[in-house]
Each structure stands twice: as C-alpha cells, then as structure tokens.
Design a protein around this nucleic acid. Sequence first.
DNA 1: AATCTATTCAATGGATAAATTGAATGGTTT
DNA 2: AAACCATTCAATTTATCCATTGAATAGATT
Lengths: 222, 222
Amino acid sequence: MNKRDFKDKVYGELSKVTKALSNPHRLEIIDLLAQGPFSVEEIAHYTGMSVANASQHLQTLKHAKLVKISRNGNFIHYSLAGESVFHAWAGLRELGLEYNAEVEKVVTDFRKGHGEVTSVDAASLVKKIEKEEVILLDVRPEEEYNRGHIHRAISAPVDKLNEQLKHLEKNKMIVAYCRGPFCVYADEAVAMLKKKGFNAVRMNEGYPDWALRGLPVEHTTT
Amino acid sequence: MNKRDFKDKVYGELSKVTKALSNPHRLEIIDLLAQGPFSVEEIAHYTGMSVANASQHLQTLKHAKLVKISRNGNFIHYSLAGESVFHAWAGLRELGLEYNAEVEKVVTDFRKGHGEVTSVDAASLVKKIEKEEVILLDVRPEEEYNRGHIHRAISAPVDKLNEQLKHLEKNKMIVAYCRGPFCVYADEAVAMLKKKGFNAVRMNEGYPDWALRGLPVEHTTT
DNA sequence: AATCTATTCAATGGATAAATTGAATGGTTT
DNA sequence: AAACCATTCAATTTATCCATTGAATAGATT
C-alpha cells in the first residue's frame, strides 16, 4: 500500500464518521443520547421526526459506530457507543459556540426572549453546591434524573416545577441545569422562577459534561 | 421563537460545520493546516487534488469558519481559524482510532508494511528528551520545522535523512515525529533508520498535539 | 497602465443523501 | 401458534454534493 492509498483510506474512513455527524437531526440525536439510552419512538418524538425517519438516521449512526443498541423487552434502546463519542461531540459543540457567531447568537437571542436568562459555569459552582450555598435543580424529565444526576441536585422537571415552588427558599440562589448548553428546559425553568420572584440562573454544562469531568454525581449502580 | 425553531436553528448551524468536515479531502486539509499556513497550490499538491478542486474545498471550509486566510505577496495562505478547530479535529481523530476498528487497522497494517514500526506516546518521552536520553528527530519538511518544533528536536526531513545518518549516535534511542498520528513521514524514517541498524521508534503525536498540551517547544516569535 | 499569476467562479454531469409512504421483519405476549 | 407491536426495509422523488473544465478576477510586478 502506497502513501496515497493509505491517506485515502484513513481520511476516507474518518469521513464516514464525520458524514454520519453531518446532519442536524443526527446531531440532535447524539446530544439526546448523551443523557442515556432511549427507544426509537422516544427519540422520534423528542426530535419531532417520524419513527421511520428516526430509525433510518439511527441506522446511519450505528453503521458509523457512533451509537449502540440494547434490547429491552419489545423496545430497542440506543445509546452512545462510548465516551469518546461524547468527547468528540463536545469538541464540535465548543467549536460552534466559539467560532460560529451564528450559533452563539441563536442561543443568546433565545435566552433574551426568556427574560435575560444569565448562565454560570460549572467550575464556579462546585464548592457552592457542596456547601449548600445554592439550590441545584435538575429540570430534566424525572426518568433522566433517576439514571444519574449531579450530587445534591433536586429533581424538578420543568413541567412539574410549579408544585415544587413552595418548598424552595426565596433567599438562596437557585441554579437550574439540564442536558447541556443547547437544552431549553433550564431556560424555561429560570424564566418561570424569576417571574415568581426567585433568584435563578442556569448552568451551561449539562449532566454529561459534569460527569465526564469526574465531578461528584449520584447514579444507580448497574 | 419556539422550542422547535430554536433547536432546528442550533443543530442546523452546527451541522453546517460538521457538513464541512464530512469529506475526506477536507479532513486531510484540516490535518495539514494544523501545521500552519499553506497556499492553495501547496495544499492541492500535498493532497493530490487539482487546484480548482482544492480551492472549492477551501471555500467550503472558509464558509464554515474552520479556516481563515492571509495574503502574502501573490499567495493566499490558509490556516485553521483557531485552536478549537484543532481541538475538535483531535476529538474526531481519537473517535476514529478508538471506535472505528477500520481506521486503526489501516494504520497498524501500514506500519507493519514498513517493518513493524513501534510507536510511543508523548507522555513517556518528555523527561527522556529533556535529559537527552533520546534523540528526537523532526522529519517534516524543513519549512514546517522552522515554523515551530519540539524543544531539542533536530530537523531531519525524511527525504534528506540519509545525509544526517553519520551524525547520529548508534547507541541512543531515536524517536521520530511528524505531523500527527496519520502522518507517514515518521514511519518512513523509522523504517529507514532500522534498516541501517539504529534503534528507532515513532511518536504518535505530532507537533500540534505537543504544542497544544503546553509541552516545551521552540518557534519563531511572530 | 499592462501583464502576470494565484486563486476563484460558473456550468456541467454523475453520484449520493433525505423525507415519505407502505410493506416486511422478528421478538413478545396472550 | 397467532396476534401484536416496535422497528426496519424498499422504493420513490427531490435536493444537494463532487470533480472537471475553461473562463474570470484581483493583487502584485514590470
């Protein structure tokens, strides 16, 4: 095998992976699967695709070795093939947020539309959370909280947040987090909390970012 | 802007970036530009494309904000738009090498074809290099060495390596590095050195990986 | 100002990707 | 074993991508 053939093969193989990542729906799927396993129907519903279409995209991701499957009764659950898939996704996310003004603009505009949602980063929160100087809310669906969440976080799915308001102290800062920087649950939660007079901000990083850095989490040992 | 529109916009914008990365030629260009700026003609020559075709791909990369240009006399030099482009590329590279058996197979097969080239990683070398227990050869074209290289590395372009052989000590281990894990210069150099009776290995990481980690380098201050 | 030259553009034809529809598959459960 | 259900496949249409060719552009040099 000569030099040129080698290069063609290497970059060709790698481009199979990047090709699988070159579609908005598939990126959304990757971002979702970073939370854990989901069935095809759940994925289709969450991403607003038809089941057949979602299935096709999942096949594409599977052939690129980006996701893997596991059967669970009648359902097939898809999840990321490994840690470096999330790692690579995080790299692309960062690239988008740092160098593509469009992406950043869309995100900040959306947050302004929700009443100036301000965000904080994980690093500045670790100690405050441990000392219980802030209240940490996990506003993802309860199912995802149960799979794993940040240490000391309280489950408060955004659509059931109303019921929990009375148990929250008004004088403590409230930090809401969800799936990641593009997840809107935290924005909705912060907007609602501020309307009710709470001092609330969102954390940019999601659960998977936190967990990958080895910061304290709680999860069911399986 | 509602939830769905927001997601469509965010993942849509991000997919423009991944789409730009979804072509083998463009990946090769990114990998090359990690070494520094190159003209269109140089890029075309190195990647074996026609100039017009290379230019088109470069336009694609430019629109995705992955590369930037700078004029230099009659030439336009392309380089990576920033550090997180290399970062994201490194993430994808790792993904390919870890989860895509094909990529790894191609690389190891190629090295076997060059007489069992063994490789070492940067971490294990830092101290040995500083103590001068090993000889470190930069086998990239001299031009790239001049732009920046690892501290204590000797420039020994693979096509001129022959002349330098007499100055090398036979009893020290020789480590060759080049552009990165997919760069073949180091393999060629190691194969040649071993044939002549030297104790040679290749380093997987290239100059940009080394520099990004903040390990000691020398470069022209511009 | 005219020429030179690296780079880009525009147009073409062939190849590949995406959403939709409806049918098929293959484990589960009754 | 039959019925069921989540998922996948096959076929179609539409849209987008890629390499090639030859012409155009826009800085730099003379």
